[in-house]
Design a protein around this nucleic acid. Structure first.
Lengths: 191, 191
DNA sequence: GTCTATATTGTGATAGAC
DNA sequence: GTCTATCACAATATAGAC
């Protein structure tokens, strides 16, 4: 059960699979999902596209593998929001932490309309419905138009400021995190 | 100079050209630029793709025609920002009005990495540099890290809240506009 | 100004050898 | 597990008739 390279075969295969995922994530982040060809993924790895299809059933399957864990985390966030287990500051903080962890894939998913179809099959609700659920949790039981607008502002502030703050660091600095949350809460709550 | 339909030929051609642009804008907004085929544009109009190529040199040429005016307006905004002709509230207001006018095309441009290449040829600076210029104008002469983060938050709040407010109306309500600007300024300026 | 027909290229994906 | 070779298809774009 050990091949000439001295590694168990299963481990070797898993390692290749992981390298494909890493390369794919990078390529998707840079060129988008539709804009990335399977050749773009295979070539940097020094393998052919045929070899790639030994590890994954399709291009969409690669994306699925990349998104599985983040999507599950996001679904949990939505569930917490709709069940009112989090107040507004806690919800914004949870949303921020999710964005921080998933920062590489966020633009990929947001960017490509072709991903919408894939997402619809993986999620209990549409992305728009899921955003609406967070907005609703932020506005509380009496959602005036003004409050809804402020909720959109706060959510967008958290998302973009987090991505901006992490453009030069791999881990979000606690001071930055606090600054972002304070700014979002000011946008949400009024003077 | 009048064809059987009773219209001057030039006017008829211009009208067709305009219908192509309208259909293309709608399709791009729905499916993205890369995700839209020229057949997607031609079929709803009841013409063939060959006919479409009489009016436009390429698919990219259609996008160029759609973006020409918005890009010029955005370049003027950047120029005003870098020349410090606008203070922070005025700059956010100008940014908001630009987003409101261009709302259909914003997701298209933001979404598709393939558009980046086209944009690089049309703009004096990269989109990232242009955003950075607005951020710099918002932070003022002494850009602390905290202030920069707040500027990102404010800008994102304006952008997304404006798109959200206009999702159900064609013209932005003055009350909504004021609400968005107030929220963004709170995010920017601190308590 | 629009058509039919076609050239050309790029892409996701598969078959079968090693 | 990776290769060579190839397929099927879709997409942009062009040629030339009407």
């Amino acid at each position: 059960m050990v091949d000439p390279a001295g590694q168990p075969r299963r481990a070797r295969s898993d390692a290749t699979r992981q390298r494909i995922l890493d390369t794919a994530r990078e390529a998707f982040a840079r060129q988008g999902y539709t804009g990335t060809t399977i050749t773009d993924i295979a070539r940097p790895l020094g393998i052919t596209t045929a070899a790639l299809y030994y590890h994954f059933a399709s291009k969409a399957d690669i994306l699925d593998s990349l998104l599985a864990e983040p999507l599950a985390a996001y679904a949990r966030l939505i569930e917490d929001a709709t069940a009112h287990r989090l107040d507004a500051p806690e919800l914004l903080a949870a949303y921020l932490d999710f964005m921080a962890e998933t920062r590489e894939l966020i633009p990929v998913v947001a960017a490509d309309p072709a991903i919408g179809a894939i997402l619809d099959e993986r999620l209990p609700r549409t992305p728009q419905q899921m955003t609406a659920a967070i907005i609703a949790a932020l506005t509380g039981p009496h959602p005036s138009r003004a409050k809804t607008i402020r909720a959109h502002a706060a959510l967008a502030a958290v998302k973009e400021a987090t991505l901006a703050a992490m453009s030069d660091t791999d881990t979000l600095r606690p001071r930055d995190r606090a600054e972002i949350l304070a700014a979002a809460l000011r946008a949400l709550d009024g003077p």
